Deep mutational scan, measured.
Amino acid sequence: NSASGPLPDGWEQAMTQDGEIYYINHKNKTTSWLDPRLDPRFAMNQR
């Protein structure tokens, strides 16, 4: 992992069949290639 600590509440790390890691936001029912622990847009929304 490139980030430390647990994923934010509602997020899950998953892997594609090709072995690529992505992240699932169960609250918004969206997915992201960016780790939410590193995404400044997500961090701003949590303050």
Rank of each mutant, 00 (worst) to 15 (best):
N1W: 02
N1E: 06
N1C: 01
S2T: 11
S2G: 08
S2I: 12
S2F: 12
A3F: 13
A3Q: 14
A3K: 15
A3G: 11
A3W: 05
A3M: 12
S4T: 12
S4K: 14
S4I: 08
S4L: 09
G5K: 09
G5F: 12
G5W: 06
G5M: 10
G5N: 11
G5E: 12
G5A: 10
P6V: 11
P6S: 13
L7C: 08
L7Q: 06
L7T: 06
P8E: 07
P8K: 09
P8H: 07
P8Q: 05
P8D: 04
P8A: 06
P8V: 07
D9P: 06
D9G: 09
D9C: 07
D9L: 08
D9Y: 06
D9M: 07
D9W: 05
G10E: 08
G10M: 07
G10C: 06
G10Y: 07
G10T: 06
G10L: 05
W11K: 00
W11Q: 01
W11V: 05
W11D: 02
W11P: 00
E12C: 08
E12T: 05
E12H: 06
E12I: 02
E12P: 00
E12N: 06
Q13K: 09
Q13N: 05
Q13W: 05
Q13T: 12
A14S: 10
M15T: 15
T16Y: 02
T16I: 01
T16D: 01
T16L: 04
Q17I: 11
Q17W: 05
Q17H: 12
Q17E: 11
Q17S: 14
Q17G: 12
Q17K: 13
Q17N: 13
D18V: 07
D18S: 12
D18Q: 11
D18G: 11
D18H: 11
D18T: 12
D18C: 09
G19S: 05
E20W: 02
E20G: 03
E20D: 09
E20V: 03
E20N: 07
E20R: 05
E20A: 05
E20T: 04
E20L: 04
I21E: 08
I21C: 08
I21D: 05
I21W: 07
Y22L: 01
Y22S: 00
Y22H: 02
Y22V: 01
Y22A: 01
Y22K: 01
Y22F: 07
Y22T: 01
Y23W: 08
Y23H: 01
Y23S: 00
Y23D: 00
Y23K: 00
Y23Q: 00
Y23A: 00
I24L: 10
I24P: 00
I24W: 02
I24F: 03
I24V: 09
N25Y: 04
N25T: 01
N25A: 02
N25I: 00
H26E: 14
H26F: 10
H26R: 12
K27F: 06
K27T: 09
K27E: 11
K27L: 10
K27R: 11
N28R: 13
N28V: 12
N28T: 08
N28F: 15
K29W: 04
K29S: 11
K29I: 01
T30G: 04
T30N: 01
T30W: 15
T31Q: 01
T31L: 01
T31C: 04
T31H: 00
T31F: 01
S32F: 00
S32P: 01
S32L: 00
S32G: 02
S32W: 02
W33K: 02
W33E: 00
W33A: 03
W33D: 02
W33I: 03
W33F: 12
D35G: 02
D35Y: 04
D35L: 03
D35I: 03
D35K: 06
D35S: 04
D35P: 04
D35Q: 04
P36E: 00
P36H: 01
P36Y: 00
P36A: 00
R37T: 05
R37Y: 02
R37S: 06
L38K: 15
L38V: 14
L38P: 12
L38S: 15
L38R: 13
L38F: 11
D39A: 13
D39R: 08
D39V: 14
D39G: 12
D39H: 15
D39Q: 15
D39C: 15
P40W: 15
P40H: 12
P40D: 15
P40F: 14
P40Q: 15
P40T: 15
R41Y: 15
F42T: 13
F42W: 11
F42P: 14
F42V: 14
F42N: 13
F42D: 11
A43E: 14
A43D: 12
A43V: 12
A43P: 14
M44S: 10
M44N: 13
M44C: 07
M44K: 11
N45M: 10
N45Y: 06
Q46T: 10
Q46M: 10
Q46V: 10
Q46W: 05
Q46I: 08
R47S: 09
R47K: 05
R47C: 04
R47A: 09
R47H: 07
R47G: 13
